[in-house]
Write a protein that binds this DNA or RNA. Structure first.
Lengths: 222, 222
DNA sequence: GGGCGGTTACGTACGATGTACGTCCGGCGT
DNA sequence: ACGCCGGACGTACATCGTACGTAACCGCCC
């Protein structure tokens, strides 16, 4: 069926590679959703037999892990050390948000599978460097980094869930449901204010609060 | 094989119910992990044929949804309105953390499947009531609520990932890996400080920062 | 009491999925 | 020249979710 590569005849098949497998998985996830990711689908995407994938990826879990790593590896974490540290932290968070915007479906993989490992290490390194340059001692810098990451991760998780729900019920969130006014007086009072969707604004609001509070913390005695 | 309930013979089978199905799923998840949850396993847990479950649950996704709802429904969200609003918010966040501690594996289901819907509504209602009582106008209260929920969710997500990684590599996080000192100078400098695991302390640290910052915000003109 | 319709438990069966295993082939070292 | 080894492939199987048809049981009306 499929011919092999021979020296004389240039083949359009560019040799299977772990990177190509991962990349195909990323494309497939972004196009058809995570639910549609199967080894067979990835193989079809590459025009390859299913079992050939296992020469480059031990199993599906590892493939997911590879997807997560690939996505975070694409983040631009470089910042200007001359800027105020809060601006550097903001830039870091926004870099995360940018790739979350570029790879929305893969990002949920990242959130659920790989808060740890080499993935988190890249972000942790950058964040920790910033906190350290800001003058905090190591224990405080660790806590600061963790708080900022928690907030950033959580905001992303919320936005992802919100987006998923929005395209499942294109009309407002509360149009379909009947809310018991005695159990939910405040959300009903808030009304369409809760339905308003401004993920970036919401994110920046909380980020400003958090960064402001951190910046007001006492520094290490030097 | 299995006899039916007849009026004369009292059977130990207490009638299949959606609630019993969901409860069995919760137990199974907490005992054997989310990976082990299958319709067949749930049926076996209840001593029931597989297809009988579908009389009470339309499909597996709905069962997961039921699990999430069950877990959040068990949260004690009652607070003392007389307390300072920041303490009420703290109590709310701690209530979430408590059920996260009681149902660690189910909580990841909640995080990934149900940030929205009735689940979130209960927390949103309580949180929004607190923010409203604190004197903020509706738009600000919404943003405050979202920021606090983002932080809480993110912290929980991080802790879950951390816990999972810790029991996969019982020895330290960095013992196994070789870290490139040129790429990760700061995390290496931090050393075992990063390996320290104090989820509650970390969580309270960030929560205090966030709540303090929010409390310093200007209130609605009344 | 005796059908009887609706509800619920059940068994069978099918398509899809992850992957273990054996085979085969092309290029490279000797 | 020849063996060998890594990678591509096909087959096969266990397991999954669930569509469908069947049968047992309930309460009800005559």
């Amino acid at each position: 069926m499929t011919r092999r590569v021979t020296s004389g005849t240039p083949e359009p098949r560019p040799a299977l590679t772990r990177d190509r497998v991962v990349r195909a998985a990323v494309d497939l996830i972004e196009r058809d959703g995570t639910r549609a990711l199967s080894m067979r689908a990835v193989a079809a995407e590459l025009g390859v037999a299913v079992m050939s994938l296992y020469n480059h990826v031990p199993n599906k879990a590892a493939l997911l892990e590879g997807v997560a790593e690939h996505v975070v590896a694409g983040m631009d974490l470089t910042g200007d050390p001359a800027e105020h540290w809060t601006d550097r932290a903001r830039a870091l968070a926004r870099a995360f948000r940018k790739t979350a915007h570029d790879y929305p479906r893969c990002m949920t993989i990242v959130l659920t599978h790989k808060v740890d490992g080499t993935v988190g290490l890249r972000m942790a390194e950058s964040a920790f460097a910033i906190a350290h340059d800001a003058g905090f001692d190591a224990p405080t810098a660790v806590r600061i980094t963790r708080a900022l990451m928690a907030y950033t991760l959580g905001a992303q998780l919320r936005d992802a869930g919100m987006a998923e729900v929005l395209d499942r019920h294109p009309d407002g969130l509360f149009a379909a449901r009947e809310l018991d006014p005695t159990r939910f007086p405040n959300v009903l009072a808030a009304g369409d204010e809760l339905a308003r969707s401004d993920p970036e604004g919401d994110f920046e609001f909380g980020l400003d609060l958090l960064l402001g509070a951190v910046d007001a913390l006492p520094r290490q005695v030097t």
